[in-house]
Write a protein that binds this DNA or RNA. Structure first.
Lengths: 250, 250
DNA sequence: CTTTTATTGTAACAATTTGTTACAATAATA
DNA sequence: TATTATTGTAACAAATTGTTACAATAAAAG
């Protein structure tokens, strides 16, 4: 979960929030926010310079808030985006993931007392959500206590807090397994895109090259692409068509 | 979650459990335990005669227990089975699922005081697990405060507490979507089974008839079936082969 | 016994889907 | 105007899945 949000809550929301009241206890939300740029999958991470570690955006659930709404709120806060593709993928509840050390370090650096029973130092179980966003539209936004909020290449992640590397792996596994079924790849692209761009999203997610003719034929056969126009690339070759994703009529 | 287990904990485990201490707060586990019998999918449910309602087996997570271990413990308790196929499928966190009324009714019937801040009357978020068990081996076992623990046909479920009908639906959806991928259907059968029995498991889960020749060819091609022997059915026709499931060598 | 009945196991062919190769179309550049 | 680098798609091949058919056979009927 996002340490920053913990502080956010502890420091600014309400008096009650200071001791964790006003939130569902023991449960957090972590978001693996994927973006796509330069034929690479990116993940949005927050940096905590005090610990030398990075963390997934995360937070807590308000007393009367739906779990899914909490996830939406968290992702919207860090990206500035609404109408985000969000999918709950796993709830991480191993006891071994409980490690109050990094949190303690951050709290100390901020001058917050760290009694052993402080609510931020208790065990948390976290529900993982994966978000697919348009890289060109997202505005990475750190919160009050994180130092940066930036995109990182999935293949070159910095050292992550707790089990956040595991959470990202599981998110990617889920994305791969449900890609064909849920047709979620489109969410990583701008509203309009070429077949080549779509193919490169698929290739990057699946980590394998696809056969161009077969990919194009398959995508067109699904009836989910609407042709918009041609696109002059300024390159010395035929201009590709531009498509838009249209929801399949059931 | 299983009301029975709440009481179980509250009444018998430790003094600490009485006020919910010793458990992870706010989070529960519910298990959708599937069995297969007479070409029907069955679900294990607990009955609370005080409320006229039925509930999924469920419970809480111990202070230092892994979430997955809690699920295993809960399913093992209700079935007497070890080495169960268990799969986490979703965490249910809508605020609207919070409804203390049935719990209050049960507590009153048991002579337990019901202050508004009683830990059992708070909002719980619950992680759903689906279990696939061998109907012939499971021994349905009610806990201290439930009246019965029995199999119910998926097509003829009694009225369920809270959002438990929704949880069962989501479990079934997950089972259907992952059936081919995870080859989980075998877990509903005894160790040895005929091709016809396996096909009827698939047909029941998917709610559609499958083509016998294609099904058999596909299953055999997967290399996960080991021929054991022939089986005399006592019927007036050729005896079918008997297979055993063998894990695919990676 | 021999024939009938109801399945099982599988081959054979058809239909569909996916993999592969090839080639015309074409926007910019030389 | 020819060249270059891609795009769009057709055409055929290979693999997978759907369908039909038929021999094998355990028990029951005659």
């Amino acid at each position: 979960m996002l340490l920053a949000d913990k502080f956010n809550m502890a420091k600014q929301v309400t008096e009650a929030a200071k001791d964790g009241k006003g939130f569902v206890p023991g449960l957090a939300v972590d978001a693996v926010i994927f973006g796509f740029h330069d034929r690479q999958l990116k993940v949005l991470l927050l940096e905590y310079k005090q610990t030398g570690l990075f963390a997934l955006p995360g937070g807590f659930i308000r007393e009367k808030e739906n779990l899914n709404d909490a996830a939406t709120r968290i992702v919207t806060r860090r990206t500035g985006l609404h109408d985000i593709y969000l999918q709950q993928f796993y709830t991480f509840g191993d006891y071994s993931r409980y490690d109050p050390k990094p949190m303690k370090a951050i709290m100390k650096a901020k001058g917050i007392p760290t009694p052993a029973d402080h609510w931020l130092l208790q065990r948390f179980i976290t529900t993982g959500y994966l978000a697919l966003v348009d890289f060109t539209q997202a505005i990475p936004t750190p919160d009050e206590i994180s130092d940066t909020c930036q995109w990182y290449e999935l293949n070159a992640l910095p050292e992550l807090m707790q089990d956040h590397a595991l959470i990202i792996n599981k998110a990617l596994d889920t994305l791969r397994l449900t890609l064909d079924q849920k047709l979620t790849g489109f969410n990583l692209l701008p509203e309009q895109f070429t077949m080549g761009e779509l193919q490169s999203v698929y290739e990057t997610i699946l980590s394998k090259t696809l056969i161009r003719a077969a990919f194009q034929r398959k995508m067109l056969s699904l009836g989910i692409l609407e042709l918009v126009a041609k696109k002059m690339t300024g390159k010395a070759h035929k201009a590709p068509y531009v498509y838009r994703f249209v929801r399949k009529r059931d």
